[in-house]
């Protein structure tokens, strides 16, 4: 009986904590939106973050994109060979990359690379009172630290995604045509026929949304962390987990709305 009561107590507490956290994320989101539209727009800071989130993630995104495209071509080939429809591999790779894997994998890689770094950096700044220092010098940390990161996330993710789409299709081509011997013309023709502009654009809209999610949650976890060096580590982990889950869950809903 006592155990039961304790269990209920724990359950209630965790529900309460979750609700509380959702509320505070919402408040955080609103204040970020408010500060985003208050001038001045700090272009230098945005460029700096775009370099960090975008340019420096380029290599890892190209790598994952290429290999994903190659694997899809290989897997698709074994399936389509049964129906002698090998040239469909091209459009399968292209549609898979542009609609789904391009945005999602890019977002997950950037979360791991940049989202975690945002949480760690802001957490460290909080521990060493740098965030207090910003307040004291009348520079709002949300405006100064978070808005540039969120804007950079929204702007760079679509750019990274289009690169991932492209190298993924290239990777699929190089596995499909020279290695597996699919007819090059049929391969390319299938892509241009079955892939529409909306497939690409919707993938990019998704990517922008994911960029917003990962930068917002990374910043949120870092900005609201407590408890010294250990807290920084915890905030980083939580930021990656929360962003990754949110990206995958919101992907479902975005797909349901768009396609």
């Amino acid at each position: 009986m006592r155990n039961l009561i304790v269990a209920f107590d724990d359950l209630g507490r965790s529900v309460l904590r979750t609700v509380e956290e959702m509320g505070s994320i919402l408040i955080f989101f609103v204040s970020v939106m408010v500060w985003m539209f208050r001038p001045p727009l700090r272009l230098r800071l945005i460029f700096k973050q775009m370099e960090f989130v975008g340019v420096k993630s380029l290599f890892v995104v190209v790598l994952t994109g290429t290999f994903t495209g190659m694997v899809m071509a290989l897997q698709g080939y074994y399936g389509f060979r049964m129906f002698s429809a090998e040239s469909m591999v091209g459009s399968t790779v292209a549609l898979g990359m542009t609609r789904e894997l391009g945005p999602v994998l890019t977002a997950l890689m950037v979360t791991a690379r940049a989202g975690s770094a945002m949480a760690a950096e802001l957490g460290t700044m909080k521990v060493t009172e740098q965030i207090d220092a910003l307040y004291v010098m009348s520079a709002n940390p949300i405006k100064y630290l978070i808005v540039p990161r969120v804007i950079a996330g929204v702007l760079t993710l679509p750019a990274l995604t289009i690169v991932a789409d492209f190298v993924g299709i290239l990777g699929g081509y190089f596995v499909g045509v020279p290695v597996l011997g699919i007819n090059a013309g049929a391969f390319v023709n299938n892509i241009t026929m079955l892939v529409g502009l909306d497939d690409i654009y919707n993938g990019l809209v998704k990517a922008a949304f994911f960029g917003f999610i990962l930068s917002l949650f990374g910043c949120y976890k870092g900005f609201t962390m407590t408890g010294g060096a250990e807290g920084v580590g915890k905030a980083t982990t939580e930021a990656v987990v929360l962003s990754s889950i949110s990206i995958l869950v919101s992907d479902y809903f975005l797909t349901a709305i768009m396609f």
Binding site: E129, A133, V136
Partner: peptide, 23 residues
């Protein structure tokens, strides 16, 4: 409010415990 507080803060300087220089 925030705006008025910022005006007051311009008259203040703070040296934090760990200096809090921006890394």
């Amino acid at each position: 409010n925030d705006r008025e507080m910022n005006e007051v803060r311009k008259n203040f300087g703070v040296l934090f415990q760990g200096s809090a220089l921006f890394d």
